[in-house]
Write a protein that binds this DNA or RNA. Structure first.
Lengths: 232, 232
DNA sequence: AAAATTTCTTAACGAAATGTTAATATGTCA
DNA sequence: TGACATATTAACATTTCGTTAAGAAATTTT
């Protein structure tokens, strides 16, 4: 069962980081590993995460500094700190930044897992409050991205696959404007490379087939840049 | 500066309990102290609290049992457990019940305070308790989720099992909208994994069998997302 | 407290949905 | 034109779902 949750793990000890990443991956989380605060911040900005696990003691940029930077961008994303020893000061600073929890190394992986589940559960309840827009009208279509249904007025309805759905949503949110390839790839495929790019093309083709029902709608390519959903 | 927050502290060691109560009181919390699970449950019912701190090891009724009883009454109140040693099993059980956190004795009081603040901060947004609705009408059915009875108008009535009942209630509360799998699993099964997911499918099948009596009602699956109870 | 009944979990497996990759064709730009 | 980017289709691999059935666990009845 794929949990669909993305975790950013920032840990400078490569062995420990690797093991922890594998453990979380086995437990069905998508894990991105960064080895220091700088890389962590870059990766945090490049794609979207549901939770961050930050080691506090790291070279170049420590976990607390990274946490502050992350909090500036995102006020709600859950943060879990890993502290080498029981450094009370670090723990208190962490809470001040808005940590959700901390764990003292060495810790039990099952307990980390329980914490993660517990934190993600309560956040998902809170996020119901968050008013995410999911109903759109464009051309002769109405589109519900929560139910993943695209319906042609006085025509048929299509059930969209998750990828189709995400891609169409991004196009619609940028209606008549450029949707840069990289942005879409990093958000939907979580990586931008040759293969994900080919995959995206496949999905653009699928969407074009749906949108064919309205002659006035087009997804045009901007060579080397991305795609643009437009009318006329 | 009175924080106005009420804490229920259940701790069997009278000395420690007293000290902890005083410490929290100094920090502007209203603290009610109970010395065992039985007294704790009584006091919980007598007035309203914003947070509970429960010692796990207690005579008569331990903290986990008390927690379960509290959770039956109140699904959202934050629970913090105190464990004498780092008893992994207790910790994991605690999370399964829906703990927000745990602390290992001996712990630092400042850290407890930081945890309490952190937990109350995030909860204070959500604590809008609604009156529990338990009577529903949909399609040709009326459904009483307190009595667990689903009755087909001019047809027969079905006694629902607890799980059938909870699941149907969640579907009805999200009528015509998506009920995400994870949300339902975490609420009803308290865990989302391969097995609970299979179990949920079994229950969806059971509900579909009941709802067959009204041809216009359907529970449809949104692949990878969840289920949707809808009409027509 | 034993027996009967109901509820719940787990396993197995086929069916359906989804995603990736390959192969090949077409288009764009310098 | 040559190099590279994009388009489309098809084959394949993987994941998710639906159902049945067997047995474990809990609850109720006798």
């Amino acid at each position: 069962m794929k949990s669909n949750k993305n975790i950013l793990l920032v840990e400078d000890d490569p062995n420990f980081g690797r093991i922890l990443k594998d453990y979380l991956t086995i437990n069905n989380y998508e894990v991105t590993l960064a080895v220091n605060g700088i890389e962590g911040f870059e990766k945090f900005n490049r794609s979207e995460f549901d939770l961050c696990i930050l080691d506090i003691m790291m070279p170049f940029k420590d976990g607390l500094t990274l946490a502050r930077e992350i909090r500036e961008i995102n006020e709600v994303i859950p943060l879990i700190f890993l502290t080498a020893k029981n450094l009370k000061d670090d723990v208190l600073k962490g809470y001040k930044i808005g940590a959700d929890d901390y764990l003292t190394k060495p810790f039990d992986s099952e307990i980390l897992l329980a914490k993660i589940k517990s934190i993600l559960n309560r956040k998902s309840n809170v996020n119901i409050e968050e008013k995410d827009v999911f109903e759109f009208e464009f051309g002769e279509f109405s589109f519900n991205s929560k139910l993943r249904i695209l319906s042609h007025k006085m025509g048929e309805s299509y059930k969209l696959s998750p990828k189709e759905n995400q891609l169409l949503k991004m196009l619609v949110l940028n209606f008549d404007d450029l949707l840069p390839r990289d942005i879409a790839l990093n958000k939907i495929w979580r990586d931008a490379n040759y293969f994900t790019s080919r995959s995206m093309d496949v999905y653009i083709a699928k969407l074009r087939k749906y949108l064919d029902k309205d002659m006035s709608l087009k997804i045009i390519n901007v060579h080397g840049e991305g795609f643009r959903l437009m009318q006329e």
